[in-house]
C-alpha cells in the first residue's frame, strides 16, 4: 500500500485541480547550527488534510516553526510556495495574515496579556490586513463568547492572561479557539491531540471538521490513530530524521501503528 516514490503521488486523485495551497520542496533547515530538516517534500492541495507522523526528535515541530517563520529555525535550502507566494520571504505576522495558523505543541504562557486583549488584537490585525473593518469591543466579545462556548472554553478563561496557569487540555482548546476565530486557510496542528482526554479530543476534532472546506487545508502532526479516526486525512507523510521517507494514504497510518517506525530506519540514514 505504501508508495515510496515522489511526494504526494498517493493522493493523485485531484489531478491538476488548481495549484496546491502549499508546496514544500527540498526544504532544509538548521536549528542552533545543526541541520534538522534534510530535504522535505510535501505538497498539500487546497481542501486536503495531510498528516505528518514520525518519532520524537524527527523534526516535526521544527517543520511547523519553519513554516510559521520562527527566528532561529533557519531554512538553508529548498523552497516553500504558499498560494503562489514565496512563503520563506514573508515575516511571521504576514504569513499569519495570509492565512497560516500554527496550533502550538506547547502554547506559550503570557502573563499580563489578557485573552480578550490578545484575541481582539489578533483578529483585528488580520481583518485590517484583509481590508475589512475592525470589530469593536462589543462585536468582538459577542463573537468570542459564541466560539468559546462551542469549544467548551470557559468565559473566565478569556479574561485570564493568555495560557497562564492553564492545564494542558485547556491550552489545546484555547489554540483551537484562536483557530476558529482567525479562520485560517492552512492550519498546522502540532500534536494538538496530545494531552487531551477523549471528550476534549472530540470537541477539538469537531471544530476542525467544522472548518473543513474546499479551499482550506490542514497539515496535522500527530502520533495518534484516534485523531485520524475523527479527522479523516487524505494523505500521510512519514518524517524520520529530517526526511520524508514515505508518503501514502490512510492505510500507511495503520501500518505504522502495527509495525512502528523501525521499518523505515534504513531510509533515514
Amino acid at each position: 500500500m505504501t508508495t515510496m516514490s515522489g511526494p504526494n503521488e498517493g493522493t493523485g486523485s485531484r489531478d491538476g485541480a488548481g495549484a496546491p495551497l502549499l508546496a514544500i520542496r527540498d526544504l532544509h533547515a538548521t536549528v542552533a547550527g545543526r541541520e534538522i530538516l534534510k530535504g522535505i517534500d510535501i505538497v498539500v492541495p487546497a481542501g486536503e488534510v495531510h498528516v505528518v507522523m514520525g518519532p520524537n526528535g524527527a523534526g516535526k515541530s521544527t517543520l511547523s516553526y519553519v513554516l510559521a517563520g520562527r527566528d532561529g529555525y533557519e531554512p538553508t535550502q529548498g523552497e516553500v510556495v504558499y498560494q503562489g507566494q514565496d512563503l520563506l520571504a514573508m515575516k511571521t505576522e504576514e504569513r499569519a495574515r495570509a492565512g497560516i495558523f500554527l496550533a502550538f505543541q506547547s502554547p506559550v504562557e503570557i502573563p499580563g496579556v489578557t485573552g480578550v486583549n490578545f484575541l481582539k488584537t489578533a483578529v483585528n490585525a488580520q481583518r485590517r490586513a484583509r481590508g475589512e473593518s475592525e470589530l469593536d469591543a462589543m462585536q468582538f466579545l459577542k463573537l468570542a463568547r459564541r466560539k468559546a462556548k462551542e469549544l467548551d472554553v470557559g468565559e473566565e478563561m478569556l479574561r485570564r492572561s493568555v495560557n497562564s496557569g492553564f492545564s494542558g487540555g485547556e491550552k489545546k482548546r484555547y489554540e483551537a479557539l484562536q483557530m476558529t476565530l482567525l479562520e485560517p486557510r492552512l492550519m498546522i496542528l502540532d500534536e494538538t491531540d496530545s494531552g487531551l482526554d477523549f471528550d476534549a479530543l472530540k470537541t477539538v476534532a469537531q471544530a476542525v471538521n467544522g472548518m473543513r472546506s474546499p479551499d482550506r487545508s490542514i497539515l496535522m502532526i500527530t502520533h495518534h490513530q484516534r485523531l485520524l479516526d475523527l479527522i479523516a486525512p487524505d494523505c500521510i507523510h512519514v518524517l524520520i530524521d529530517g526526511r520524508i521517507v514515505s508518503t501514502g494514504d490512510r492505510s500507511l497510518a495503520h501500518e505504522l501503528e502495527k509495525s512502528g517506525y523501525a521499518q523505515f530506519a534504513g531510509q533515514a540514514a
Binding site: 502573563p111 496579556v113 482567525l182
Partner: peptide
C-alpha cells in the same frame, strides 16, 4: 520573551504591536 513575541506574531500581530503588548503586560 522571544517565545512570547513569536507566539503573538504568529497570530498576525505586527512585531511592534506585539512588543508593546508584552511591555504593557510587564
Amino acid at each position: 520573551d522571544e517565545t512570547a513575541l513569536f507566539y503573538l506574531r504568529s497570530r498576525g500581530i505586527a512585531e511592534a504591536d506585539a512588543r508593546q503588548l508584552l511591555i504593557e503586560a510587564f
